[in-house]
């Protein structure tokens, strides 16, 4: 077994995780799971940033992924507040059932 891991393996892992995130985003019906799939995609992108940061031997990639984390935190706070409001008004979490603009 080679000691060094090729850089492309990290990118492939990132692509697979991103693909799984897209699949979950498209196929799942529960709004919370859809939201978590988005987080999975963000994580996959972060892995790419950190990998390229290793390649160029600079910390800029770390800072980008740090910003992505901050944005994800803000997004989670607002998104979960929206989910709570939707659940209060419609008492359902299935996105297929939330299909009318006005209730």
């Amino acid at each position: 077994m080679p000691n060094a891991v090729p850089l492309s393996w990290y990118l492939i892992l990132s692509a697979i995780l991103f693909g799984l995130g897209v699949a979950g985003f498209i196929f799942r019906r529960n709004i919370i799971t859809v939201f978590m799939s988005i987080e999975l995609m963000l994580n996959a992108v972060n892995l790419t940033f950190v990998t390229f940061s290793y390649q160029f031997k600079q910390v800029d990639g770390h800072i980008y992924s740090f910003f992505v984390m901050v944005v994800a935190a803000a997004e989670a706070a607002v998104g979960l507040a929206i989910i709570l409001t939707v659940f209060k008004n419609r008492s359902t979490l299935m996105i297929d059932d939330v299909n009318s603009m006005k209730y």
Partner: peptide, 19 residues
């Protein structure tokens, strides 16, 4: 853990603390 391997110790800990 993979971030740690790639030399991003701060970002690995931020990943666990924030995410």
């Amino acid at each position: 853990i993979l971030y740690l391997q790639l030399g991003g110790e701060f970002i690995a800990m931020a990943q666990i603390i924030v995410y």
